[in-house]
């Protein structure tokens, strides 16, 4: 199963712009490559990503096969108060990866 790695700060000042780096180990099979017998390898990619902080939407993305293997995505947002950053990745096969990072405002 695909695994997500997230780099996020543990603490932040109120109103600080923090940068989150995410990377998922995933083949992102484009559905355009062929195997040795000339058959098309079926598409299997992560087609959506979303991040919410304290229940409020930060970013929602849809990905196409043109996103590289091991999809990397970096985004930034301002932290209003202590809360949970919840990130979700959706696979073509319907499975989900979810990760939560708590950012504490000191």
């Amino acid at each position: 199963m695909a695994k997500a790695r997230v780099k996020a700060p543990k603490t932040a000042a109120a109103g600080e712009l923090v940068t989150i780096k995410t990377l998922v180990n995933h083949p992102m099979e484009s559905g355009q490559r062929k195997d040795k017998e000339g058959k098309i390898i079926p598409r299997k990619i992560i087609n959506a990503f979303s991040a919410t902080f304290g229940g409020e939407a930060v970013v929602a993305a849809t990905f196409e096969p043109a996103i590289s293997t091991n999809p990397y995505f970096q985004f930034s947002f301002t932290v209003p108060a202590t809360g949970d950053l919840v990130m979700k990745w959706t696979d073509d096969d319907g499975s989900m990866i979810e990760q939560t990072k708590t950012i504490t405002v000191a």
Partner: peptide
């Protein structure tokens, strides 16, 4: 072959920036 790469919707907290790797 198909031009779509990705699309993003940003909430109020976000600074509407992003970075990724594409084919």
């Amino acid at each position: 072959p198909s031009p779509g790469v990705a699309s993003f919707e940003f909430g109020a907290l976000s600074d509407s920036s992003g970075s990724t790797r594409i084919r």
